[in-house]
Each structure stands twice: as structure tokens, then as C-alpha cells.
Design a protein around this nucleic acid. Structure first.
Lengths: 200, 200
DNA sequence: AATCGAAACTTGACAGTGTAAAGTTGGTAC
DNA sequence: GTACCAACTTTACACTGTCAAGTTTCGATT
């Protein structure tokens, strides 16, 4: 059997990368380790992705896509009759739970210098993730008669800051003390998120 | 003149590291580059810090110390007659401004895998930074009659999440679009922070 | 004051890394 | 069937962290 023409090496390498960062963290990843895991020569990845940064950029794109889908699903398949506050809380929970379920991907997406932040595709999908969050904010603004663009944007930023900050904090807690069920259960900021709007 | 016994190589290396990460980012740092910048041989840093992680752990400790001091100063030297909401806002601004003034140190402190998170000294100083933030939250809780420990902790987490999330978002905005005066001026979440307490 | 030991730093070495260039293979379109 | 081209390998180089062993210098002890 030929050693050339792997089949779908691109996909295999991305999966290998995902697997490696889950085991050793983003910093423990190397192109050569991915290549070895996929059973190809050490320079094969360079042909598909231009560099390590290229590989991780593409992995981040996939991660953002999954992330956006998780947020979308939580919103669309959630109880549509629930209050807007509760729906916001549900979205926030989905956000944090993704971070806890895929900690390394989450770090890759939001706090790794390796992906190319100016990559067009990456900007696109990270924008979509943000847009998904704002889907929940918009009706809340409507409900409260907030209609000018600047105020809506402030509300979006406020919500994103709180949710993301909490996800980050939960992740750090998990890194230090292992799995952290306390926070998974508690989620205080999520409960308060809806209330937040009462005063904007 | 002797090439041995530099004087205070430890300090010189830490300053070199700080300077290098400001120029090339944390990922662009290497022990050997620090050594070269300090004018010593490539293996000299290993003698003072056990590893790259050791150096960056110590730099993170210094950064957290400065950070805590900046928060403390904003609180203690701020207008003591201002409302508690305003004082909270001031603290939040100090938090974000540190992130914008020292972006690489901030990333080192909060989103780099390189420092040793289990290092005793690092845990100590990062705890102190958190404690500095809670100094502002406590009186707000008192004012609102929140006295049980769990509720106070929830308030702390909420405040930290919002402020830190906003700092993170500002930093990303700056990385992508250069210096971002909009956010430096706007700070919407800071204005809302005090108001938040009205509904806890 | 001479000496001895330890601390500070250098030199040398090794395995591992990203990545560029050139060579090899195998499918595919004509 | 042949020519081409994409997929992959091989080779090579500069760079990295880190260990081990050597050299220098300071400071304390006698």
C-alpha cells in the first residue's frame, strides 16, 4: 500500500491537533507530533496548512463554528415561551458549558496568540458567534424600548463581557482545582443576567 | 573587566523579558533572546530561573503586584466622598486601563499557559489582586443589606466577570484595530456596574 | 592573608521545533 | 499512454529549552 495520498490528511491532521491539545494543552502541540499521530512525515502538514499558525487558525475556525452552533441550538431549541431573561440565561449557560466541555478549543479561540487573528475566515466565524449572542440581546432591548444603535451595542458589550468573563473565570477555576461542579451548578451571573436589563 | 558576576542579572533578565514580550508578544519570547539582551550567555537564565516557565512565573508575580497596586491606588486615592457605585466604576476603569497600558503583561497574567499556575507566590499575588477588587464590592453589599457569605461571593464573581470580560474584549479590539480610543472613552460596562447592584 | 567552597556564569552538547527546498510517487486529464 | 500536478517524503538549517561540565570570582573561614 502506498504511503502517498493519505485520503483526507487535512481532516486527519485537524483531528490529531484537537486530540493533542486536549492531552497536552495548546502549548504542548507541535506540527511534527500531529504528523506522527496521523502517520505521515513531519513536513506533510506544511503542505496543507502553511504553518503551525495556519493549522491552528483552521482549527479555531472549526471551533467557532461548533461554538456558534451550540449557542444557536440552545436558543432555537430552548423554550420559546420562556421570558427573555430566562432565554438570555440559557444562552449564557450554553456559552459557559462549551468552555467547560472544550476548554482547550475555547482557549484557542479566545486567548491564544497562535491563530492568525487577521484571517478572513476566522474573523467571519467569530463575528457569527458574537452575532448569535446578540440575537438574544436584541429582543430584550426591544422590550425595554432601547432602539438607538449605540445603546444596543452597549447592551451587547455588557452581556458579552459578563458571560465571557464568567466563562474565563470558570475555566481558570477548573484548571487549578480540577473539574469544578460548584460553578457548573451555581452560575450566579447567569441568573443575574436578565435582571441586568431592568436597569439599563 | 570580568564577564562573570553581572551585578543583578536576575532583575536585568526580567526587564529584558518584559521588553521582549512588548516588542514581539509572549510567544515571541525566548530565554536565549533575553540572555542576549542582557549581554550574557544563553544558559545564564537557567541558573536564576529554572526554566522559561520559571522566568515567566516570576514576571507574572511582578505584574500582579503592580496590577494590585494600581487597583489599590485607584481606590484609596479616589474621591472617598463619591458614591459606592462611582467608586466601583473607578476601580473597573483602573482594571481596564492596566490591561490597555500593559497588554502583554495582562495576557501573561490571565491567559498564558506558560507561567506555573500552581506556584505558591503566584497564587498569593493573584489572590491579592482579586481581594483588591472585592474591597469595593463589600461596602456595596453592606449598603444593600447583603450579608450572607454566598451572596457576597456571587456579587464578587459577577463584578469580576464583567470587568474582566470587558478588559479582555477591549484588548482583543486593540489587537485587531490598533489602539482603540473608543473603548477607552466609552467603558459602557463600567457605567452600568454600579447600577447593577440595584437589582442584586 | 591564604585558602577553600560555593555561587555566578560560560561552554558545549543534545533532542526537539518550524519551515523552506528539492526529490519522489501516484492519480488524472487529455 | 503520456504529461502534468497535487500529495507526500527527504534533506537541511536555524532556532529553541535544558542539561552537564567547566571556569571564574566573591566571600567566609581559618
Amino acid at each position: 500500500m502506498s504511503d502517498y495520498h493519505h485520503g483526507d490528511l487535512r481532516k486527519a491532521l485537524l483531528e490529531a491537533a484537537h486530540s493533542v491539545i486536549n492531552e497536552k494543552g495548546i502549548h504542548g502541540l507541535s506540527l511534527r507530533a500531529c504528523a506522527a499521530k496521523a502517520g505521515v512525515s513531519h513536513a506533510a502538514p506544511t503542505h496543507h496548512f502553511r504553518s503551525l499558525s495556519g493549522l491552528l487558525t483552521e482549527l479555531a475556525v472549526i471551533a467557532f463554528t461548533d461554538f456558534t452552533e451550540a449557542l444557536r441550538q440552545a436558543y432555537d431549541e430552548g423554550d420559546a415561551t420562556a421570558s427573555l431573561q430566562q432565554r438570555l440565561q440559557t444562552a449564557g449557560n450554553a456559552y459557559v458549558q462549551f468552555a467547560l466541555r472544550e476548554p482547550e478549543l475555547f482557549k484557542l479561540m479566545f486567548s491564544s496568540p497562535l491563530p492568525d487573528q487577521s484571517n478572513e475566515q476566522l474573523c467571519e466565524v467569530s463575528g457569527q458567534a458574537y452575532a448569535e449572542l446578540t440575537r438574544v440581546v436584541k429582543p430584550l432591548c426591544d422590550e425595554r424600548g432601547i432602539s438607538d444603535k449605540a445603546s444596543i451595542e452597549q447592551a451587547e458589550i455588557l452581556v458579552w463581557s459578563t458571560i465571557h468573563g464568567y466563562a474565563h473565570l470558570s475555566l481558570k477555576q477548573m484548571d487549578v482545582h480540577g473539574v469544578c461542579d460548584d460553578m457548573r451548578a451555581g452560575m450566579p451571573p447567569m441568573e443575574i443576567l436578565g435582571v441586568l436589563f431592568e436597569q439599563i
